[in-house]
Amino acid sequence: MRWGVHHANHYYGHSYVLAGYCGLDDADPPRMHGYLQHGWNIGDGLAADHEFVAGTPVLLWSERTRRRAWSLGRRETYVVGSPLAYLLRMEPDPGVRREGTIWYPFHGWEGQHVLGDHARLIDEIRDTEPGPVTVCLYWQEYRTASVRRRYERAGFRVICHGYRGGRWERLDPRFLRRQAAELRRHRRVASNRLCSAVLYGALAGCEPAVYGDPMQLDGEDFAFGGPERIRRQWPELHGPFVDPVAARETAVAELGADRLLPPAELTRILGWQTANGGAR
């Protein structure tokens, strides 16, 4: 990958949320001096395909991820917490009546393909979920009419939060806000794999669930243990109905909601002090 990684900081509108939290223009976030973890993962916090430039701080969501990253040789690390946790803190729950389940079928990212049986998954969702179901697809699947229609025909509402953004192009500053708003309309959040969305939901007040065929990516790399390890390490989040209190505790820790930075500190850690005029 020739162009390095900083563009990943803008994925899902993360940098926009943090800029707003730091009191900067949230329509045009400055460049971050570091790699921001952009999704929950079970490795060192960075995506496997991202080139790493030595000495650039790695800004992680949780203390557990930081310890793991350290054990894998990463030194310049700092736990900042996840952008969603900042967003939820900035924008209080509007308190609309929550209804039904938002379901995130496991997806691949650009250039990856999921191997699995959508039909069986649909049956399982129908059998399990007590209320109306919203299925949220990744944009690739959403754009694939055959996949989308399958879920629609099952009677589910099908949505997509938007593009996560590419290399500074098609960035979607409102992705995370849109996702937070959807989560706060639902009583439950579920997926066939424990992933960012399930943890986000648990933090946003949904009862989480992980069940169904976890499916597989074509050529998926299980260097960090894959779904089996996730199931062993976080059993409290697996099953169609889990203890919401224990699940929330895990979500708080994994998303770093218990260790968010004050705006002045975040501004410095992201190297945004010069962007702020007065602040250093």
Partner: peptide, 8 residues
């Protein structure tokens, strides 16, 4: 100082 919300 920023960790306590101060700008110095």
């Amino acid at each position: 100082a920023a960790m306590t919300g101060r700008e110095i």
